[in-house]
């Protein structure tokens, strides 16, 4: 096959595999960088790198995982120190935090009848709008946020996340656990700040 035909073929294959993933990558990049301009730059850079290293992509393996690894690494080397990360969280206080329990307490306090269980708590949870959840996510330190995003948004297995982040499966597990707890604590703090709920302990 002549050189330029091979080059055309390569481009076509690359576009077929990766262009449909663009929205998905952009969403993740937005949550990583927390800024649309940086997200665009990050995604573009990831695509360029992916194209440059396309010969290393093993056909038949997960293309989304492959380009997300590139995106994640690019983010970590380039953007991580740009915007100030939230303070390291007090894990002791967060480890046992459970948003559902806090909500049950509120429901019980406001309503003399027995808590009506999941239905009511989930209704409270769904009162949060997207912006609340996105803002709460921003408060989760990067390493935990990434693990949660790869699990919740990308639906990767712990093993896949371990490979993308280049850490052990045990580390992935604990980052997801902590990330989710921090997120819930943050959502709870919002609810209190805005007076949506009153802290029963006070």
């Amino acid at each position: 096959m002549p050189e330029n035909r091979r080059e055309q073929e390569k481009k076509r294959e690359f576009e077929e595999l990766f262009v449909p993933l663009l929205d998905n990558l952009y969403n993740i990049a937005l949550r990583m960088t927390r800024n649309p301009k940086d997200a665009e730059d990050l995604v573009q850079e990831a695509y360029l790198k992916a194209f440059r290293f396309f010969h290393r992509f093993e056909r038949g393996t997960n293309a989304r995982a492959w380009i997300l690894t590139i995106l994640t690494n690019t983010f970590r080397t380039k953007y991580r120190k740009k915007k100030q990360e939230p303070d390291i969280v007090d894990f002791q206080a967060i480890e046992n935090f459970c948003l559902a329990d806090e909500m049950v307490k509120i429901i019980r306090a406001s309503d003399k009848s027995e808590a009506r269980g999941a239905g009511e708590v989930i209704r409270l949870l769904k009162d949060y709008v997207s912006d609340d959840i996105l803002e709460a996510l921003e408060a989760v330190p990067e390493q935990f946020r990434l693990a949660v995003l790869l699990s919740d948004v990308e639906d990767f297995s712990y093993q896949e996340i371990a490979e993308i982040l280049d850490v052990s499966v045990g580390t992935v597990k604990s980052r997801i656990f902590r990330g989710r707890k921090i997120l819930q604590k943050q959502l709870w703090d919002f609810a209190k700040e805005r007076g949506i709920v009153r802290d029963t302990k006070k």
Binding site: D23, I133, L134, L137
Partner: peptide, 9 residues
Amino acid sequence: LVHKCCDAA
């Protein structure tokens, strides 16, 4: 919920 709101853009 996390999935839904991080998948909308």
